[in-house]
């Protein structure tokens, strides 16, 4: 609130320059009180100013401060997951207007430019709902553990420099290394399915992100030592051969990671690894 002694100019004031007319945006939110509880839809009207740069999370914050539905019913604040708010942590992934994406980069001026426009929010459907828009993605981290997604270095002591690497190879690895485990590729994948039971995680399809990570680690001089172990996992049920080539993963990836390239490359490596294993046994 600007006052007589304002000295550091906050950008919060509604009269801030560049901020235009306000309008009402309706949010239809699929809510659920917890695992095993039924889902329901609630609507909220949120005032948004043109040009203020509001995103879905800013609107959810406004709903949290004023948890009253469009019909005037008092309710609880919507629960959601968020972190960096700049699309590098992956936390705020949800289904916005039917499509998996990060809520932080979903700008209201783009999605709902006119007064009365509607935006629907749903939790991701491929992971168990914790509450409302917040889901449990621990399966993705479990898969990274199973794939030994690390470099088996000798320890944290100073043992000299790492391997030299050509820039082309670094660029290739970097692309896969920007994967933020958000789960968009899995949400959009027709082959990846909700598996609430951790006991079935190791035989159900691992999905594109895991295949991309397999390539990332197999391509590194030290991490690549574990490539045969990772390829064993890729040959197992739920491995790379369960991919159905719908290629949605690469289209919804917010980091534009060439996931389908990884699927093909790992498919090739798995074929060779499978043949080797067949003849070596």
């Amino acid at each position: 609130m600007p006052n007589a002694t304002s000295q550091n100019g906050t950008v919060e004031d509604p009269a801030a320059p560049g901020v235009g007319r306000t309008r009402t945006v309706r949010f239809r939110v699929k809510r659920c009180d917890g695992p095993g509880k039924p889902s329901r839809w609630e609507s909220f009207d949120v005032r948004v100013a043109q040009g203020e740069g509001a995103n879905i999370l800013a609107c959810l914050q406004r709903i949290a401060a004023n948890p009253v539905t469009a019909e005037g019913a008092k309710t609880t604040p919507v629960v959601w997951d968020a972190g960096c708010l700049e699309e590098v942590c992956g936390a705020c992934t949800m289904v916005v207007n039917g499509r998996a994406r990060q809520a932080c980069s979903a700008l209201i001026d783009t999605l709902a430019p006119n007064d009365g426009d509607e935006i629907t929010l749903e939790p991701m459907s491929k992971f168990p709902v914790v509450r409302d828009l917040h889901v449990d993605r621990s399966r993705m981290f479990h898969t990274l553990k199973r794939l030994k997604a690390w470099a088996p270095i000798d320890g944290l002591y100073a043992l000299g420099p790492g391997p030299r690497e050509q820039p082309a190879r670094q660029q290739e690895r970097y692309a896969y290394s920007t994967c933020m485990t958000c789960g968009c590729c899995l949400e959009a994948c027709p082959q990846f399915r909700l598996e609430p039971q951790p006991g079935r995680w190791d035989t159900a399809f691992v999905g594109a992100n895991a295949i991309g990570q397999t390539l990332l680690f197999n391509e590194h001089a030290i991490a690549g030592e574990l490539a045969p172990d990772r390829l064993d996992e890729m040959l197992a049920p739920g491995g790379v051969s369960d991919c159905g080539n719908a290629q949605n993963c690469v289209k919804v990836c917010p980091k534009e990671i060439p996931l389908t390239d990884a699927i093909a490359a790992i498919g090739r490596a798995a074929t060779i690894h499978g043949l080797k294993r067949f003849f070596a046994r």
Binding site: A151, A158, R164, Y174
Partner: peptide, 20 residues
């Protein structure tokens, strides 16, 4: 020493033409 360690862990540091 810390940079070297991170390099061994596989951090994709940008590289020069020669791979440094």
């Amino acid at each position: 020493k810390i940079i070297d360690l991170l390099d061994r862990m596989g951090v994709p540091f940008n590289r020069t033409h020669e791979g440094f």
